[in-house]
Every structure is written in C-alpha cells, then in structure tokens.
C-alpha cells in the first residue's frame, strides 16, 4: 500500500503543468504575426533638393558640370543639360520647349523629348539615352529630377529605378528585355549609372 502511494506521487511530479505557458504562447504568436509586416520595405537615397534659382557662380577654372535634368511631364520625359549640348551627343533635333516652361519664367533651351509609348512612359528609351550621356561624361553622377506638379510619386520612383544602375546591355529595343535585364556587375558591385538624384521643385 505504502509502495503504491509513493509511486503515484512521483508520477505527479514528473508531469509539468504546461497549460498556462501554452495559453501565453498561443496568445503571443497571433499577436506577433499580426504585428509583423510580411512585405519587405527598402529605401532609395536622395540628395537634398536645390530650390533656389540663384546659384553661386562656378569657378571658371573648373570644368563646367553637365547639369543633366530629367523632367517628367504628362506626355513623356524631357532631358536637358546646362553644361553640354546633349542634342548633338544623342543625335536628336531640339524639341520645342513645353508651353508651361516659358510661363514659369524658364528660358527655353534645347533638350531631348522622349514621348510616352501609348499610355506608359518609355523607360527603355530613357535608359538608352542616359547610357550614351554617361559614356560621354563618365565622371558625372548627379542628375536633377523634376516633374509636373500632378505627376504621382510612383513614377518618380520608377524613373529613379531606370537610371540608377547600368544594365548588362547598353541599349534595349523593347520594354520586356529592359525589365528582364539584370544589373551589370563590376568587382561584385553593381555599376552605377546616375545614382545621385537631386530633386528640383515642381512648377505650379
């Protein structure tokens, strides 16, 4: 009798009561799962915008910077540069400045216009032209980016995606091959194209 009692006690000690811990864990797991974001967030670095129109006079001894500007308009992209004649470099005739520019007091200047391909922006052509300009000005990395006031932010991100890295080929014929291309690697690092984006103000 005494022996059997002893055996019962030892069995009770062996079994831990895990029910409270289970309750806790079962509550915690859904809480953490809900709080966890399943999508991966990344970031794009941009430089401080230049808003003032008047800039300090550049040193005459220094080489004049290219001052490349990509403008996103409702109907396509406009490329302009202050330091070089990009029309000659790209072999394009100067496009007529948009009507809005003259009204905003901007001096009309030569530039390259890349029209929309149907309803979508022609990122492929933008990339092709930016590669040519990069080859001609290898030391330049800064590009000014501006857009019409109503252009949604997502297109600005897409333009930055198109001009940040150099891809395997220098020119692409269609959007499919441009989308499928992977960045060109140099010593295990992606070769940069125009990575330093400077925001310019939107004209209202």
């Amino acid at each position: 009798m005494a022996r059997s009692k002893k055996k019962t006690i030892s069995t009770e000690i062996e079994d831990l009561n895990l029910v409270p811990i289970m309750n806790l864990v079962v509550c915690l797991i859904p809480m953490v799962l809900v709080g966890m974001s399943l999508v991966k967030i990344g970031v794009i670095n941009v430089n401080a915008p230049r808003f003032g129109m008047g800039q300090a006079e550049p040193d005459p001894d220094e080489e004049k910077p290219l001052g490349l500007t990509v403008a996103i308009a409702e109907d396509g992209f406009r490329l302009t540069a202050t330091g070089a004649d990009i029309n000659t470099e790209l072999g394009e005739t100067p496009a007529a400045p948009p009507a809005g520019d003259a009204a905003a007091g901007m001096p009309p200047q030569p530039g390259v216009f890349i029209p929309k391909n149907g309803d979508v922006y022609n990122y492929t052509d933008l990339y092709n032209k930016l590669v040519v300009l990069k080859d001609n000005h290898a030391d330049e990395t800064i590009v000014n980016l501006t857009a019409d006031a109503k252009i949604p932010f997502k297109f600005v991100i897409k333009v930055m995606d198109a001009m940040r890295f150099r891809l395997e080929a220098d020119t692409y014929q269609d959007a499919e091959s441009f989308t499928a291309a992977s960045p060109k690697m140099e010593a295990n690092k992606q070769e940069l194209l125009w990575p330093d984006v400077v925001f310019a103000v939107a004209k209202q």
């Binding site: 991966k40 941009v46 492929t124 897409k158 995606d161």
Partner: peptide
C-alpha cells in the same frame, strides 16, 4: 522635402516596397 530642409534635415530616404520590376 523643402519643409524638412528648412528644419535642418538634409539627407532623405524614400521608403519603397522591394521586389518591383524595372520599366513597367
């Protein structure tokens, strides 16, 4: 961005979703 610049923030990062496709 201009307002942030006035408040002495000078470096910006835009949050985006990873895994987007180029040129689409």
């Amino acid at each position: 961005l201009y307002t942030a610049g006035q408040a002495e923030f000078s470096k910006y990062k835009f949050a985006v979703l990873k895994g987007g496709q180029r040129g689409t």
